[in-house]
Amino acid sequence: MLKDITFGQYIETNSPIHKLDPRTKLILLILNIVFLFLTKNMYSLAFAAVFLITIILISKVPLKIYLKNIKAIWFIVVFTSLINLLYGKTGKTLISFWKITITTGGVYRALFLALRIIILIIISSVLTYTTTPNDLTDGIESLLSPLRYIGLGAAVHTIAMMMTIALRFIPTLVDETEKIMNAQKARGADLENGKFRDKIKALVPILVPLLISSIRRAYDLAEAMECRCYNGGVGRVKMKRLKYGLNDLAALIVCLLFCAGIIILNTLFKQVII
C-alpha cells in the first residue's frame, strides 16, 4: 500500500529530460499547467494528451510507474467527475430519474475534467521523476533569488532547505510508518477491519510514534547540521552551479509550440466545454 507512493521519487534513466536545467523544467512545468487549464475543448485537450505521451516517451521512465500515481488519486478523479456528471445541465438529456438528470454536457464535462486531472498529475510527476530533489530545490532557490532585492534572501534559502529536507525524508518516513504498522500489528492491532470510527482510532498507535520519531529526527538533523557549521544561507556557495544550455532553449521552443497549438485549437474549434 505505502510502497505505491512514488511521488517525489527520482528515477534515473539519463534521458534528454533528465539533462535539462531544473529551472527550465520548473518554468516549463508551470507553463504547461497554465495552458492545460486554458484548454477549452476536446481537441486542445487531446493535443495536450499527445504532447504528454511524447514527453513520457522521451523521459524513458516506464509508463507503469506513472500509472501507479493515478492509482493513488483515483478517488479525486472519480469524485470530481461524478460531481460534474450530476451537475452538468447542458445538452441532450440522457437519463432522468428522481432528482437526477444526466445530460450529454455533463458526460463531456466529467470526461474532460478526469482527463485534465490525470494529465496534470502525470506531467507534474515527470518533473520529480527526472530531477533529483537537490537539483529541484537548487532550481527553486535560484528562481526565487530575485526576492533578495526586497530583503527576503534568507527566507528563500530557508524555504529551499526545508523543501530539500522534506523531500529527502519522504522515503525514510514511509519506511518508518511501515515498521510501526508491523509492530502494532504484532501487538494485535487491527488496521483493516472495523467501522470507519474504529479505523480512525486505529491510526493513533501509528501516528503518535511516527510524530515522535519525526521530531526526534528533526532534532538530530539540526544538531548534525550545526556541527558542520551550518548557519543559514549567508555566505554559502554552491558546489554545482546551474547553467543553461542549448538543450534548454530547444525545450523552451518545443513548449512554446505546444502553447501555440493549444491557442490555435481553442480558436479553431468553437465547441466550448468549460
Binding site: K179, I180, A183, A186, G188, A189, P205, P209
Partner: peptide
C-alpha cells in the same frame, strides 16, 4: 499473532500511550 509474539528492533519507538499501564494494555 497472539500465539507468536514478535518484538521488533527498537520496540521503544512503538510506544504511544499516556501511561506505561495503558501501553502495556494495548496488546
Amino acid at each position: 499473532r497472539s500465539l507468536v509474539g514478535l518484538v521488533f528492533q527498537y520496540p521503544e519507538y512503538q510506544l504511544f500511550e499516556e501511561t506505561v499501564y495503558k501501553d502495556i494494555a494495548f496488546g
